[in-house]
Write a protein that binds this DNA or RNA. Structure first.
Length: 467
RNA sequence: CGGGAAGUAGCGCAGCUUGGUUAGCGCGCCUGCUUUGGGAGCAGGAGGCCGCGGGUUCGAAUCCCGCCUUCCCGACCA
């Protein structure tokens, strides 16, 4: 059988492109850096949206929508913010056939507009905390676009909150980072990460601190999966987001922002994919089980239909694939798309009262009784979910090497992550790493927990090549 | 944006060096028949502004200039 995809070991970037194309996830758009997300890719994104949205709402945030066009002057109000973003801004100078009095930027992120309206809506401590989230597209001009990983326009969720105290802001931010993002990454995407704080040079423009979750891709490079920012009072001062406290004094709010984007789809591909294609963890899969009749035979099709109904009764997202080409063709098509579990139904199976189950992650085949198959499939999906997390965690741990200096870190980063004391890095060390295309991905405590400050004693730096 | 490579049918490519009939091949697609337990077989068929624009020439996929897009390596980022 000819390989459908370039093997990962031969050329990983090429493998990635092949998967995106052959699994029918996305195409390049006509303008440089733009992306057309095809139904299958979008269905995976919708699974992510649904899981994230549910968790976000559970923390008390509400969805809203702010405009795509932002007056350029808004960006300028926070000095570091505009400086950080100006290289990647798309600016609209004309509208209705005339030059605009003030240029509009196409939102690269919405701290500024949302800040403006928070200032308007927040009067009293009784209005706090204000917790907003929006699902939107944003534009950041990219020099080197890659489907899902770096596109000039992408989809994301951006949360923005305002709090009375710094303590409340930080507590909430940690709830988002751990109970929303990390829970989603671990339990839905089966993607273990290193949680930590960004080094000063890697943090968001205008933030006091940025928290990250760094995933390890199968080629050993890091991908920032999500981001959460402690904005302190920087934006609150710039946009005059203030409130009157219980004792009547005027106080400046503390704000946060946090986001997760369509980049997660790229992260999913590179976390679990193999030489046969995509591997989607069951909880992230739009289709969890595909039922394939081995031949178009009335008895077989009838059995498939009954099976499909039973699976759906068990809450399994299942579909039937019939008639589209040969059996082998259908099998490989679904393998490339990474559907977690395949059920093959043929006359020989039916004669014995069984069907054949095939796991996408291991390729393992087993015959199971048709009786109670819905529940059995549902259980197996959970096993697969757990096994994928286990395998990804082992890969991450095995490819993380403790080193004692910059040289060792650069060497280790050729095939995975390196971990070393942050005190050994410093400005100079970070320069040397960056010169070798290696960067400090995050700072963590020795026990893996997230520091409160980059100045804490004993922090470790996780360094790697990255996307 | 700097360095490198490339754009010819939906996808992958040949043709270009040395301009010259209806621009080919594999896969895919359509029709029919036979098939179907791991990318099916036979027969017939459809599909091309040769990336875009300009130039040279009697004549351009082929030579020259500009632009656009894609891929790889760097600096920037979700």
């Amino acid at each position: 059988m000819a390989a459908a995809l370039t093997p990962q070991g031969e050329d990983f970037p090429r493998w990635y492109q092949d998967v995106v194309a052959k699994a029918e996830m996305a195409d390049n758009g006509p303008a440089r850096g733009t992306m057309v997300i095809r139904p299958y890719g979008y269905a995976i994104w919708e699974r992510m949206v649904s899981e994230l949205d549910e968790r976000i709402k559970a923390t008390g945030a509400e969805n809203a929508y702010f405009p795509l066009f932002i007056p350029l002057s808004y960006l300028s109000r926070e000095a570091e913010h505009v400086e950080g973003f100006s290289p990647e801004l798309a600016v609209v100078t004309h509208g209705g056939g005339e030059e605009l009095a003030e240029p509009l930027v196409v939102r690269p992120t919405s701290e500024t507009v949302i800040g403006e309206f928070m200032a308007k809506w927040i009067q009293s401590h009784r209005d706090l905390p204000l917790r907003l989230n929006q699902w939107a597209n944003v534009v950041r001009w990219e020099m080197r676009p890659r489907l899902f990983l770096r596109s000039s326009e992408f989809l994301w969720q951006e949360g923005h909150t305002a709090h009375a105290t710094r303590e409340d802001a930080l507590n909430y931010l940690m709830t988002i980072h751990l109970n929303v993002y990390n829970d989603f990454l671990v339990n839905v995407l089966a993607a273990p990460t290193y949680l930590g704080m960004k080094s000063p040079r890697e943090r968001f423009a205008g933030a006091l601190n940025t928290y990250t979750a760094e995933g390890m891709m199968k080629d050993g490079k890091a991908l920032q999966m999500v981001t959460s920012h402690d904005l302190g009072q920087n934006f609150a001062r710039a946009f005059e987001i203030t409130y009157q406290s219980e004792d009547g004094a005027s106080e400046v709010c503390h704000t946060t922002s946090w986001g997760a984007s369509t980049r997660l789809v790229g992260g999913l591909i590179m976390t679990h994919g193999d030489d046969e294609g995509l591997v989607v963890p069951p909880r992230a899969a739009p289709t969890q089980v595909v039922v394939i009749p081995v031949r178009d035979d009335d008895a077989v099709l009838a059995a498939c239909e009954r099976l499909l109904e039973e699976l759906r009764r068990e809450g399994v997202r299942a579909r039937l694939d019939r008639g589209r080409g040969s059996f082998g063709r259908r099998v490989t098509d679904w393998e490339i798309k990474g559907v977690p579990l395949r059920i093959e139904v043929g006359p020989r199976d039916l004669a014995e009262g069984v069907v054949t189950l095939v796991r996408r992650d291991t390729g393992e085949k087993s015959a199971r009784s048709i009786q109670g198959l819905g529940a059995a499939a549902s259980d197996l999906l959970e096993v697969i979910q757990g096994d994928l997390l286990g395998a990804a965690t082992r890969r991450r741990d095995e490819a993380t090497i403790d080193v004692t200096g910059i040289e060792g870190a650069i060497e280790a980063a050729q095939g995975g992550f390196a971990r070393l004391p942050w005190s050994l890095v410093g400005e100079d060390g970070e320069d040397r790493l960056n010169a070798e295309a290696v960067s400090v991905r995050c700072l963590t405590r020795p026990d893996g927990s997230i520091p409160e400050s980059v100045h804490e004693e004993g922090l470790l730096a996780i360094v790697a090549r990255s996307y």
